[in-house]
Design a protein around this nucleic acid. Structure first.
Lengths: 220, 220
DNA sequence: CGACAGATTATCCAAACGTATAACAGTTGG
DNA sequence: CCAACTGTTATACGTTTGGATAATCTGTCG
């Protein structure tokens, strides 16, 4: 057999290559679960050969960790982004935060599958457990600060409990809304989330969500 | 080389063997994630050899499906069991159901990891998606019937929305309470769950949970 | 423009995977 | 107590996996 032609390639910066490999890993896990993310499949999607993974990451496990941390950071960042460009009224800000978490691109079945695919590693790998916990607390603290800004009387302990409750509610709705897409009407999850968070906190968020995009008219 | 000594064995009933293999699969996925549940590991834990799996299941995938269905059925069954032997008062029954879902053995990190490990198969495999959806609806319908029994005025549409909300809240708290065990005080999740479900529905569940086991004194 | 450094590819490897099948042995009915 | 049945084991196969190493190409700097 004659020697195969060696493929041409471009040298890229370290950050580019690492980002490409991380993105490829996330996409594959989101699409086909953890077992679909083999070193060969990751390399193929990133447009490189398998050996390059070990050039940038000590092992596949390290790439896996990096991909998870990137996922979690991205999700909280997207939530916080929703607070930019919204008014200063506390109820309005909270409503914006809640509804952003219950809409695409945060509410997405691929994101759920990706997140779920890492659960057992979160349990067993101390570094991942730390990253997961930090990300959870970061999100909850944003929530708690939004709650604290509401015009109500409430102790800090009560605000903590309310933040835990709202966080759980949002997470559960995010999960079910993402996976059971066609079990709910368009915008139903957002409306239910706003109403329930409002009920838990004793404020009316629906009335303050008028400025936000219509839940029923979200583009795919 | 002389022939290896053949291991002695007992013939078991089909149901026993199938249950053993399913249990072994669930334990392995819960402990080490989906990739730990190889045919050889499953067989070893079930006390048989690998070939037997194919005698009872057409493929490993079919065993996987059976294990997931068994998991979901078991979880909803455990929730419904909590309604046995509790009083007839609606608030008390709802409180029992909620708190059972937020305690061991339902609230357990192994259960979460096991459930999460199947998420991507739920997405891709139509049979599993159906099973998952049926299980979700079964749980939610129990919840909705408990809500409908409360002494309140509420339309059916409103009860449906409330059931979705409470289901999401319970699922989210189940998830976080299971994975982030040491981030919460003992019984804190149960208390928050009862208070928040009460807030969403406009009833006081804490007052009606006095008969239930003390959340702070659950045995491991 | 030529040489150097290292980014990238190509190739190889041992281990583990799911599956297939033949041989064996426990169980059951006559 | 033997014969048929089938649950179960043992063994082998072809594929794929993550990891390691050698060869080579690309961009850069003197």
């Amino acid at each position: 057999m004659e020697p195969a032609a060696r493929r041409t390639y471009r040298r890229e910066s370290e950050e580019t290559r690492r980002a490409d490999l991380i993105t490829a890993t996330q996409e594959l896990v989101a699409e086909g679960g953890p077992e679909a993310a083999t070193v060969r499949a990751i390399a193929a999607r990133a447009g490189v050969t398998a050996g390059l993974i070990r050039h940038y990451f000590q092992s596949k496990d390290e790439l896996t960790r990096a991909a998870f941390v990137s996922l979690m950071d991205g999700m909280t960042a997207k939530g916080a982004d929703a607070l930019e460009g919204v008014g200063a009224q506390p109820e309005e800000r909270l409503a914006a935060f809640v509804s952003a978490s219950l809409r695409p691109p945060v509410m997405d079945v691929g994101a759920v599958v990706l997140w779920a695919g890492y659960m057992h590693k979160v349990r067993n790998d101390p570094a991942l457990r730390l990253a997961h916990e930090a990300s959870y607390l970061a999100y909850r603290n944003i929530l708690q600060s939004l709650i604290a800004a509401l015009p109500r009387e409430a102790t800090e302990a009560q605000q903590r409990a309310e933040a835990i409750a709202c966080n759980g509610l949002i997470d559960g709705l995010w999960l079910e809304g993402s996976v059971l897409t066609h079990a709910f009407a368009p915008g139903e999850i957002v409306t239910i989330g706003l109403r329930s968070v409002g009920a838990i906190l004793g404020v009316d968020l629906i009335a303050h969500s008028a400025m936000l995009p219509d839940p029923g008219k979200i583009l795919p």
